[in-house]
């Protein structure tokens, strides 16, 4: 909901325009990269890492929203920005992520890979330096979730 608001921050022209930034002002015009785009890049980068099962939005059961997304979409362009919030400045960005990881992985190792990938992708695609990536693992995904519920009920 809040993510739908596209943030096109106004900036004052600078004397020496930075080589690259999300809000880059030159004499020919201004280049703006929406926060949503930065969030999407981060979301894609996070999902690329094996062990990351799903990104989940705050609040209402993460698995549920993940399911809804999978049911609703199925197409190619279905990568949203759920589970990702970004704070974008002139030159730097901070990313907060909520995710579900697969059972069996080392969370610190997966998280490290996610942080590296987000930092690299956001930097190469937008020129922004990622200062911080905070990751919260909200759930684990058990491949045989069904089996687990069965044994519990027995």
């Amino acid at each position: 909901m809040a993510e739908t608001r596209q943030n096109v921050a106004e900036t004052r022209p600078q004397e020496t325009a930075p080589a690259r930034a999300t809000d880059l002002v030159t004499e020919h015009g201004r280049t703006t990269i929406a926060d949503d785009v930065v969030a999407k890049i981060a979301a894609i980068a996070a999902r690329e890492v094996p062990g990351v099962h799903e990104l989940v939005s705050q609040g209402v059961g993460g698995t549920l929203s993940g399911l809804t997304q999978r049911v609703a979409g199925g197409g190619g362009d279905n990568i949203g920005t759920q589970g990702v919030s970004v704070e974008v400045g002139q030159r730097e960005a901070a990313v907060d992520l909520r995710m579900i990881v697969d059972y069996g992985v080392s969370i610190p190792q997966v998280a490290d890979a996610v942080r590296r990938n987000i930092r690299n992708r956001v930097n190469s695609m937008t020129g922004l330096t990622v200062r911080e990536v905070n990751i919260d693992v909200t759930d684990l995904y058990f491949a045989q979730q069904q089996q687990q519920t069965d044994t519990r009920v027995q």
Partner: peptide
């Protein structure tokens, strides 16, 4: 580079599993 946290409930789920 930031903070990595795990929800308590997720760990409890792991223990239960």
């Amino acid at each position: 580079m930031g903070r990595v946290t795990v929800d308590r409930r997720a760990v409890q789920d792991l223990v239960s599993w």
